[in-house]
Amino acid sequence: NRRRTVCPGAGEHPLQYNYTFWYSRRTPSRPASSQSYEQNIRQIGSVASVEQFWRFYSHLVRPGDLSGHSDFHLFKEGIKPMWEDESNRSGGKWIIRLRKGLASRFWENIILAMLGEQFMVGEEICGAVVSIRFQEDILSIWNRTSNDQTTTSRIRDTLRRVLNLPTNSIMEYKTHTDSLRDNSSFRNTKISI
């Protein structure tokens, strides 16, 4: 399942993994069942090199300029940004809530860290999401194994460093099993300071 659909061009800088961009948008009044979630999420393109990433990314709307209830997802190629995907099933995510106005800059920093392999947790990272909501925006980074505390702590510490978060900022971790159970991405999270 590591079949690459795109390859780096001549002279380009290859990425450790290929990544795929996804976009989703939903009407907030409608319940987010897993079926309607899958119908609302669209694959928009894959990249294999740093240069391909910039060409693609430069044509995307900045997340902070999106309206309504929408998400950009950047996941390793072959991993669907869904709790149920084989690679995500035993995983979870770190959540960072952002006040309005910060999403574009923080999103860029989190994905550059991911593409550049700054997390140093082997194969653990699955992808990153920026979620545009009405009151606040939310960044998350998903990993494969929610009960591996060495990994989750290292991801948290790397996030603090690459996003330059104050040491007392609140970060929350939520397992995908819990998200499936309450059918919600961001409710009832375990808070960690």
Binding site: G11, Q16, E51, R55, L112, L115, G116, E117
Partner: peptide, 21 residues
């Protein structure tokens, strides 16, 4: 094998290279 690591500064430099346009 070897892991391909890039820091933020390097990635931002690649943005302005002709290959990325």
């Amino acid at each position: 094998g070897t892991r391909i690591i890039y820091d933020r500064k390097f990635l931002l430099q690649c943005r302005t290279s002709p290959l990325a346009r």
